[in-house]
Amino acid sequence: MDAAVKSAIAVDRLVKTYATTTAVKGISFSLMPGTMTGLLGGNGAGKSTTIATIMGLLTPTSGTVRVLGADMPRQRYRVLHRMNFQSPYVDMPMRLTVRQNLRVFGDLYAVPDIAGRIDQLASDLDLREILDRPSGKLSAGQKTRVSVAKSLLNNPEVLLLDEPTASLDPDTADWVRGHLERYCRAHNATVLLASHNMAEVERLCERVIMMKKGEIVDDDTPQQLLARYGRETLEDVFLDIARGRGDAQQRVS
């Protein structure tokens, strides 16, 4: 059995071109089940396009994306019920209460005992007090927690997270990270995390994929990246890559 078949996510020579702009230029990587991987890069690096293609929202111009063995987006309905995502770029209907929204999505994902699952997530993510409040009347931090709850409703095997702790205060953000860590360990879930919070990536991810201008410019463990770039934080590594300094300059060129 080759790596692409065993892996939870396999991206092979993915190219995505919009009109005259190539957002992703032939990238390849695969994520094994039960791993947490950070996808880093500045604005326009191609992270969102990569994630959208993995979710089946975009058709690749060339190359392939396989999730849990299904070719995306062609075979997406084989696996969408086993995946989920969280993103600050989508909202939930504002007039519906948190409970109503979670109920609707629970039903879409055919979650058994949806009332019990909402109760459990409300407890885990401290949502009890806001369950019957309209989603549009939540603070940014509360919305993020609800969005994380929605992404965990169906106990996904593959979880795509885009800035999961944006808008959260440091205490709540740390608490959400802890919850995500426990979830992934308990469910052997594969997580691809796009974030600009380097400390978060360093804490959660055993592997970091760095993107720049549609290409992967580095791919390693956080420790190896720090050692290779001679830096103390991932943020410094990120800046080296973004600004094309030192070792990063050689790799990109």
């Binding site: 939930m92 504002m94 055919a110």
Partner: peptide, 12 residues
């Protein structure tokens, strides 16, 4: 409601 992404990404 910017909910279309949620809908299109669901098994619906």
């Amino acid at each position: 409601a910017r909910n279309l992404g949620n809908i299109m990404m669901s098994p619906l």
